[in-house]
Design a protein around this nucleic acid. Sequence first.
DNA 1: AAGCCCATCCGAA
DNA 2: TTCGGATGGGCTT
Length: 168
Amino acid sequence: MICYSMGSCALGQLLVAWSDRGICAVGLADTPDQLILSLQADFADHPLQKIDPASSPYFSTVHRFIEVPSASPPDLPLDLMGTAFQQRVWQALTDILPGQTLSYAQLARNAGKPSAIRAVANACGANRIAILVPCHRVVRSDGTPGGYRWGADRKQTLLAREATTPDH
DNA sequence: AAGCCCATCCGAA
DNA sequence: TTCGGATGGGCTT
């Protein structure tokens, strides 16, 4: 059983989903329909139950962190469902500090698979937990943003708001 | 077991 | 600036 709550936030519509082990998805989209469809696609084999955000153990904390980012993300249990390789990559993602960016090649080195660059990029794209697992801080080697599951525009917004020293 | 997809990278023209 | 080859994990057949 997977429960989820939805609401509005500064980046659009926000979805937080959790299992009995912790948060298993955080999604961003323009409309609630898009969020539900992608949740159903990701967890096709699980029953889903919608919960009022006010009754969710996680929604308000995630929502607040998005509205008012703090230096360190809230310490919430995450239920990362993926292969061993994907978990390695996602773990390496959590080591990236706010305001810091890495190339996919650097992330591949940090994850111990320096030549598996595209595979690492694919693992980033397979991450279902937006913002708490900061995959938006990984960009291409040439400085261009690269892709983002929840919209390239949101990736740029997140990077811009985290940039500590804007250049002039 | 084979084939295709992919949020990459780098060198060459 | 574009192009093609190398690359490896995941998913479907």
